[in-house]
Design a protein around this nucleic acid. Structure first.
Length: 228
DNA sequence: GCGACAG
DNA sequence: ATCTTGTCGC
């Protein structure tokens, strides 16, 4: 199963998407809004996924919009193939946003992926929207020094190509992994994440989206409509 | 060949 | 990610 023809086809799709990914700044105008989407799971009779998203004013970081949806998951979690599990709900949620953000931050990797096609890149290319990936753990690539002081940045390389950064956003935590997804450069993706990150380990859009997903989950578990 | 492996 | 309360430490 792990080396099936089917999975090879998915990798072929990833290579095609990677070719279409543009790691350059291609914003339609200066950034005014930034979005964040995070997913949570519900383990009921059939596994469901909760996609929660927020859109913030880039300058004030105030919430402009919150949206969410719940749908079935149809693909298992397989490292390097996360996008096939999480992109469908993510893209549906993006369509639901009335204020499509100028830049979208997603929980996972952008080009910091073995085929340069992580979840954030996958979603970016399929929607044509600028995306940045922020992950808790590195998936591939090498770096020279472990960030030790708050604010430290360490580039990550894969086969000689720079694919992202480790960024120590807060003291006494592990660094977060930042990589561009689509329509944004390496440098700008890091700059945007830095600007959105303060007081907490994760950038505000992702932190708020994560909290939102948890609120919804609590609400659903509390209601009697939820049976497991 | 072996180990590592986002959420 | 998820199952889960309090608790140790910066």
């Amino acid at each position: 199963m792990k080396n099936s023809y089917y999975l090879d086809e998915l990798r072929k799709i990833q290579k095609e998407i990677a070719k279409k990914a543009l790691i350059e700044n291609k914003f339609e105008h200066s950034i005014e809004t930034v979005g964040g989407i995070d997913l949570g799971y519900l383990r009921n009779n059939f596994e469901s996924i909760i996609a929660a998203g927020v859109v913030l004013d880039y300058k004030t970081m105030e919430i402009i919009e919150k949206e969410f949806l719940i749908q079935k998951v149809n693909f298992p979690y397989i490292p390097t193939l996360l996008a096939f599990r999480e992109s469908p709900s993510t893209i549906n949620l993006i369509k639901k946003l009335k204020h499509g953000p100028d830049i979208l931050i997603l929980n996972g990797h952008g080009i910091a992926h073995p085929l340069y096609c992580g979840y954030a890149t996958h979603v970016g290319v399929l929607t044509g929207k600028p995306t940045i990936g922020v992950a808790k753990k590195i998936l591939c690539g090498k770096y020279s020094h472990e960030p030790s002081k708050k604010g430290d940045v360490e580039p990550i390389f894969l086969k000689g190509r720079k694919i992202g950064f480790l960024y120590l956003s807060k003291k006494n935590t592990r660094p977060i992994v930042v990589s561009p997804g689509h329509l944004v450069s390496l440098e700008t993706s890091l700059e945007i994440i830095k600007k959105c990150t303060y007081n907490f380990k994760f950038p505000e859009p992702l932190r708020l989206a994560h909290n939102f997903a948890n609120e919804i989950k609590r609400e659903i578990k509390k209601s009697k409509l939820f049976k497991r």
